[in-house]
């Protein structure tokens, strides 16, 4: 099944410059695998070497964080919107410790 995956500008390069892309799969994990096959290297932006989500990246199914659903096994269906959001830090450059 085809699900819309939206990314922020940090990840747009990894999916060919688009803001959103449709991916096939019935879980988050399957969607990421599908994106990896279309865009080799994509998954390393989202998953750590141990196969878990990077701790500075969140994935939302609609508006809910998948950590509170079923993590990477969270089921997805048509009509769901998946958002991948890495932490942003931008602001003033003049307050670093």
């Amino acid at each position: 099944m085809s699900v819309e995956v939206r990314v922020t500008s940090l990840l747009q390069k990894a999916i060919g410059g688009a803001k959103s892309v449709s991916a096939q799969g019935d879980t988050i994990s399957a969607l990421l695998d599908n994106l990896e096959s279309s865009y080799p290297g994509f998954k390393s932006n989202v998953l750590a070497d141990n196969g878990e989500l990077h701790r500075f990246v969140n994935i939302y199914k609609n508006n809910e964080d998948i950590r509170y659903l079923g993590n990477l096994d969270t089921p997805v269906g048509s009509g769901d919107v998946i958002s991948i959001l890495p932490a942003l830090a931008g602001g003033s450059t003049s307050c670093r410790p």
Binding site: A89, G91, S92, T93, C95, R96
Partner: peptide
């Protein structure tokens, strides 16, 4: 109100 740019300050 946090308007700082870097992660170290953000966590601090």
């Amino acid at each position: 109100v946090n308007g700082c740019d870097n992660f170290a300050t953000r966590y601090l």
